[in-house]
């Protein structure tokens, strides 16, 4: 085999003839011609990309700068922080409350969202499907204050159900009754807040997964049907595998919304100390803690709340990174 340092790649028209010049370097690819349109487009996308990063960094920097007082207090005198036991003792119940309520919301909303999306794309009569899709999209446009008001109304009606839960399933810590053997008599518990959250994130998950299910290649669906798959089997063989990564990112967007939802939770939940039981009063989420205390906060208290916000920012970032990793792992390549 002859060894040659000469480039044998002949470029498009306009590339210098490789035979006419001595090979001076190992990799002599002819310089590609870039058209002005491409150049403008790539500059625009670059600027947009940098802008996003700058905004993100700006938010992070702002939160960090404002957290300075809290960090100092934490180092010099932890007992000056709300609760009297330092920042971490203060923040971790909030973190737990936030994660639990979001997880419940996600757990409840995802199956429903997938079911509705599958129904509208593959089961519903042709006339009904667009109407359903429209209604779901409308749900997403309802302001969270309205959900909050509705949640308060709902809470009162849930107490009987919570009592029943605590009676039969009280042995499970999350449904345990309080010391008097009773549950919250207003129903304004973390479980109520979580259920309202699940309804709030339902539309976004539904409408994203619906778009994905609509894009299942017809050929894939027919492949399953022609093998004698029933409609459900076809969904399992073609639609779901194809939509896997889309479902993952849709749920993660829903989770993001649940983590950050402020208004509805602040209105519904009567906050309190961290308790394992979700049917008695107590617990609090980060977003709701900030919203409820911000108006009167000043000085160190204000800085504390902003630091709590920083914690939420980090949690959300971590969740999104995890979601990216999941999506990258499960995405289908080809066809």
């Amino acid at each position: 085999m002859p060894t040659s340092t000469q480039t044998t790649v002949s470029g498009p028209a306009g590339a210098p003839d490789p035979d006419s010049r001595p090979a001076s370097g190992p990799a002599q690819t002819p310089k590609a011609v870039v058209r002005p349109g491409d150049r403008i487009f790539s500059a625009a996308t670059l600027i947009a990309g940098i802008l996003i990063l700058l905004i993100l960094a700006g938010v992070a920097l702002f939160l960090l700068a404002q957290s300075k007082d809290t960090i100092n207090a934490q180092i010099s005198d932890p007992s000056s922080i709300t609760g009297g036991h330092g920042f971490f003792a203060y923040v971790w119940p909030l973190v737990v409350g936030t994660l639990i309520s979001s997880a419940i919301a996600l757990l409840v909303a995802t199956p429903f969202a997938l079911g509705i999306a599958l129904f509208t794309t593959h089961m519903a009569p042709r006339k009904l499907a667009p109407v359903l899709g429209y209604v779901i999209d409308l749900l997403a446009a309802i302001p969270s204050v309205v959900y909050g008001l509705w949640g308060i109304a709902l809470a009162g009606n849930l107490t009987a159900f919570y009592l029943w839960l605590s009676k039969w399933f009280g042995w499970i810590p999350i449904f345990a009754p309080d010391a008097d053997g009773s549950v919250s008599n207003t129903g304004r518990t973390l479980l109520t807040a979580s259920l309202v959250l699940s309804i709030m994130i339902l539309p976004i998950i539904t409408s994203l997964t619906r778009e994905i299910f609509l894009q299942t290649p017809r050929l894939q669906e027919e492949a399953a049907l022609a093998l004698g798959a029933t409609r459900w089997e076809m969904i399992r063989m073609s639609v779901l595998p194809f939509g896997k990564s889309g479902i993952a990112s849709a749920t993660m967007l829903g989770l993001g919304r649940a983590l950050g939802e402020t208004m509805a939770v602040a209105m519904i939940l009567s906050p309190g100390l961290l308790t394992a039981s979700l049917v008695v009063s107590g617990n609090q989420t980060i977003a709701s803690e900030i919203a409820q205390n911000f108006p009167e906060a000043a000085g160190l208290r204000l800085s504390e709340l902003i630091t709590v916000g920083l914690v939420l920012f980090v949690i959300t970032l971590l969740v999104n990174m995890a979601a990216r990793a999941i999506v990258a792992k499960t995405s289908v390549k080809g066809s």
């Binding site: 290649p217 050929l219 894939q220 027919e222 492949a223 399953a224 049907l225 022609a226 093998l227 004698g228 063989m237 073609s238 595998p241 194809f242 289908v332 390549k333 080809g334 066809s335």
Partner: peptide
């Protein structure tokens, strides 16, 4: 369809 198999113009294995 379980008794009558079909092969399509474009290959469509489940990816």
């Amino acid at each position: 369809r379980r008794e009558v198999g079909m092969v399509f113009q474009r290959a469509n294995p489940f990816p």
